[in-house]
Design a protein around this nucleic acid. Structure first.
Length: 519
RNA sequence: GACGGGCUAGCUCAAUUGGCAGAGCAAGUGACUCUUAAUCACUAGGUUCGGGGUUCGAGUCCCCGGCCCGUCACCA
């Protein structure tokens, strides 16, 4: 990254961000200032600057000095300190200048006067541009207009910026640039930074909650020989030395259950899953889930854990279990446990009149759907059709948090059958604002039943040519043939939970670097 | 994948019925020692997403392509 070698034509065709003629002139101006600094013996990229205070700490310090002062003398100031940050705005006033400095915590005005700094030190002001990162030595004062400011004794260039920032007032509006160059979004838009911080807090809170319950956190393989554990199309790759095709995992489920077999009675993983599917406002090809498994628990216990976890995270990260209403989007959302439990069969019947026990084959279900104007995808398996009914007729009504309980066995190959309810498994999904948040069951631990279910899935794959049908994982079957205790498990979307807490409608606002088409 | 909307200076946005491509900010020069969207004067900055077509004339109309957004379809 030699500054001299800045010609955009030389950066290769893979460099998407080429400079138009007008932008090149702006860059040349900055390069010229960089050269001037060097000729003055100033390093535009010095290795170190020891700041003593963040902007926020400096302001707090001054307010304390003001508070401690008994008289109202107007020349109150702190001891000398050092702050650092990015130049966001500059107001030249001849032999005095004001700079708005922004760091990772907040903003602070810098007040620079020629007679206070000396001619030579003050001259650096002329070589500064918006976006430069500087260090400032000085004392904190309050200006006559009342703004807490650092009166500079010295300004040190820490990083000369080559490219102009987005408009200081209009900000960065272009969504494409916001997603492709998220750093500009973070610099310009407070919301972007807020969401990034919220996401970190959500994950931290989630970890804390799970560790508090005695769960062990693990990491399982991302490159796997069989993409099993969910119904999704995997990404394929290849290991050269092993000369073997591998897949990126579509779920962490089967590996975590192997750990339950191994005696880790409470286990969870927070990690990235990969699904080779379309992208839209709430789907990204890579996304993050937490999956947890607990021995000697069933889906009722897991339901309690989920509502406790989500409400706990909401309280810790937003200060309340009640999420504010957003005009035109959602009402106030109350995450306080317990969440309403709804029997899936009864709920579908109530919304559509369809009883999935009575329409237990593709033909009768298709007909029932068509009679109610629900689109029927030709060649779909029964479970897919019912899933369509649920997602179009039931989910949109689940605005406040709800659990849908007890799913048909045909669409749940990894869940345990419910005693006394033929064709039904102990499975639930959690919904908020019409969006699925989690999927959970009493895990199937009968190895003979599990093998039959996998084989059924394999037959369905052949019959319906459905690349998303779950796959048989022999290693997993061998594992549970050794005996897996009764277990309750759940998978919950971390991105979607963060969307909910942030009040965002698009997963792209939550992922720092969402998937984009190449230009 | 289908349909609809969008793409104009580094950024934010204008441009009437098809008739000279503009403003603010940012940049450059100058003035200014308490400004805060600083102010004032001047200067420069354009492949109107790319390609083709219609026309005396296209940012504007038509066709092809790219990218973004939205709705639908699929999934979590």
């Amino acid at each position: 990254m030699t500054p001299e070698n800045h010609s955009q034509e030389d950066t290769g065709q893979q460099n998407r961000i080429v400079s138009a003629a007008g932008e090149k002139k702006l860059i040349d101006d900055r390069l010229s200032k960089t050269a001037q600094m060097r000729s003055l013996g100033i390093d535009p990229y010095p290795p170190r600057f020891d700041r003593t205070h963040t902007t926020v700490e400096a302001i707090t310090l001054f307010e304390r000095v003001e508070g401690d002062s008994s008289d109202t003398a107007e020349h109150l100031k702190t001891e000398p300190l050092r702050v650092a940050g990015r130049v966001m705005a500059r107001r030249g006033q001849g032999k005095a200048s004001f700079i708005d400095l922004k760091d990772g915590h907040g903003s602070l005005q810098i007040f620079a006067r020629q007679n206070a700094m000396g001619d030579e030190a003050y001259s650096i002001i002329d070589l500064l541009d918006l976006g430069d990162i500087i260090g400032v030595d000085g004392t904190v004062i309050r200006t006559r207009r009342g703004e807490i400011s650092v009166e500079a004794t010295k300004i040190t260039v820490l990083t000369k910026s080559m490219r102009p920032l987005p408009d200081k007032w209009g900000g960065l509006q272009d969504q494409e640039v916001r997603f492709r160059q998220r750093y500009l979004d973070l610099i310009s838009n407070e919301k972007a930074m807020k969401n990034a911080i919220l996401r970190s807090k959500v994950v931290q809170s989630m970890r804390g909650f799970m560790h508090g319950l005695g769960f062990i956190e693990v990491e399982t393989p991302i490159l796997v020989p069989v993409a099993a554990g969910a119904q999704a199309t995997p990404f394929e790759t290849h290991h050269n030395q092993l000369n073997r095709d591998l897949y990126l995992r579509i779920a962490t489920e089967l590996y975590l259950k192997k750990l339950i077999v191994g005696g880790i009675e409470r286990v969870f993983e927070i990690g990235r899953l990969f699904r080779n599917e379309g992208l839209d406002h709430d789907h990204n090809p890579e996304f993050t889930t937490i999956e947890s498994y607990q021995a000697y628990a069933d889906y009722s216990d897991v339901m309690e854990m989920v509502e406790n976890m989500v409400s706990h995270i909401a309280l810790e990260t937003t200060g309340s279990m009640i999420l504010p209403a957003i005009e035109g989007r959602r009402p106030e959302i109350d995450l306080t446990p317990p969440w309403t439990r709804l029997d899936l069969r009864a709920e579908i019947k109530k919304r559509t009149g369809i009883d999935f026990v009575e329409t237990s084959d593709v033909e009768s279900l298709s007909q029932a759907m068509q009679e109610r104007g629900i689109y029927v995808e030709q060649g779909s398996a029964w479970g897919r059709l019912l899933d369509k009914v649920i997602s179009t007729e039931v989910e949109p009504h689940l605005v406040q948090p709800h659990f849908l309980i007890d799913y048909p066995i045909a669409m749940s190959p990894l869940a345990k059958q419910k005693p006394g309810a033929a064709g039904i498994v102990e499975r639930f999904e959690g919904f908020v604002v019409g969006s699925e948040l989690c999927n959970a069951f009493s895990e199937l631990n009968d190895p003979v039943d599990q093998r039959e279910r996998f084989e059924q899935q394999e037959r369905m794959r052949d019959e319906f040519d459905d690349s998303e049908t779950d796959r048989l994982d022999e290693d997993f079957l061998v594992a549970i043939e050794h005996g897996m205790p009764p277990t309750g498990g759940v998978g919950l979307g971390v991105d979607r939970l963060t969307m909910l807490l942030a009040g965002e409608e698009s997963i792209r606002e939550i992922l720092l670097f969402p998937a984009m088409r190449n230009v």
